[in-house]
Design a protein around this nucleic acid. Structure first.
Lengths: 225, 225
DNA sequence: CGCTCTCCCCGCCGCGCGCGGGAGGTCCGG
DNA sequence: CCGGACCTCCCGCGCGCGGCGGGGAGAGCG
């Protein structure tokens, strides 16, 4: 079973280069080409390809917007492989949000292009090494920045950590009391202890500390109660 | 120039399998084997390899701990390739924090092992597709959860957004007043307006909202003032 | 020119919060 | 056995916070 591919790039020369490279492989068939985002969307609907090889910088409509539209309206589960020259953070985030399965740079060796297409067609995901490195660094940094603050957390007792979390969830003292089945005065006592131990002032700063230390993390719970 | 590799895995059979696979490739040389974390650390110092192929689950000392120690003490810039059967989130985070260059699963096709070693030796990074997928999903989710909340932010006026940020920094009303050169009562009024517009109750919940919506982000400022 | 809307500013009141201090209970290890 | 850590609860005080009402300046509009 051959992999049906649409190639979208505004530079005809580059586009043709990709097509030539892919034609070497008998399991890959380029069914259409597109010179901008609109053509890419149309080609996707007309030919229902397995993989769309998409450039970002294109006239009429950029590759990210085209990716979003294709994936939003498609019912046959196509995969999009973003292929670009530059990799600013902004692009990466938008691309990943748009639902693309891969984000690779054009400086890859030619033979790797076919491999990438196959990986994506099989449901896999790919990220350019430099981007992967940034992801790793970002997470590593998060966890180390946390470490400096999280170190203060072991000054707290187990019960106090529970209350820190409850406070970080936006609960009032009375609510925490009901939640942990203890008296309201007890909660206040714990909160005071937490403040002195962590060198903080408000319960507001407790919330900030909880987020900065990684004890709680954005996206874990709802806000609008 | 050959790539010098140390293979660390507690199961001798698996270890030998890796060695056999790598021996096929003339540009890769396995200089030592290790059956646990301690042996891996020692072998690394003795042979100064370019790449350490490291299992996570090992007796004496696990692969993550061994990775941390090796990279902390090494002065010749070795790369660590984590190779494991399972991929729970916990492992991944620890692995990335420990400084490993790659995290791949043992279900990869054999010929890909050598490719991975070469990639890592050249300074590249690798993540298993399933992990990459999770990273992408996580980021995509972050940005959509944010979008839902951040949408409410344009109900606020410019002045109110300033105050939300100041509140999220842990400032009291008086401090905000001094900072913005307005009366303390005015700050209160703004805060009230913010609360009603966002459907919140406390200034605590304002802080939470600021983090959850992405208006402020962990790691942007210090806490212990 | 009036009308309305928005944004920004202020003052007064009740309440929850933070502070200081104290006290009884259990569990653990020296 | 006795000290220490931890959890629990009580009281009273002062202040910052949040709710409510209101006023003034500017913009858009008929």
């Amino acid at each position: 079973m051959t992999i049906r591919v649409v190639v979208a790039d505004d530079q005809a020369l580059v586009r043709r280069g990709f097509v030539m490279i892919l034609r070497i492989h008998p399991d890959i068939e380029v069914v259409a080409e597109a010179g901008n985002g609109l053509e890419a969307v149309e080609a996707a609907h007309r030919h229902r390809p397995d993989v769309i090889l998409m450039d970002i910088r294109m006239p009429e409509m950029d590759g990210l917007e085209a990716t979003s539209r294709i994936l939003a309206e498609a019912d046959w589960g196509p995969k999009v492989l973003i292929l670009t020259t530059f990799d600013p953070d902004e692009y990466v985030y938008k691309a990943l949000r748009s639902g693309a399965s891969a984000f690779v740079l054009k400086d890859i060796p030619p033979e790797q292009l076919a491999t990438s297409v196959r990986t994506v067609a099989e449901g896999g995901t790919l990220l350019a090494p430099s981007i992967t490195r940034r992801f790793i660094d970002r997470f590593a940094q998060r966890r180390t920045v946390n470490a400096a603050l999280a170190a203060r957390l072991d000054r707290l007792t187990g019960r106090e950590r529970e209350i820190v979390i409850a406070v970080a969830w936006g609960a009032s003292n009375a609510e925490i009391a009901g939640q942990l089945v203890i008296g309201a005065a007890t909660v206040k006592s714990h909160v005071s202890s937490i403040l002195t131990k962590l060198g903080l002032r408000d319960r507001v700063q407790i919330v900030i500390f909880a987020y900065e230390s990684g004890l709680v993390e954005a996206g874990e719970h709802d806000v609008g109660h």
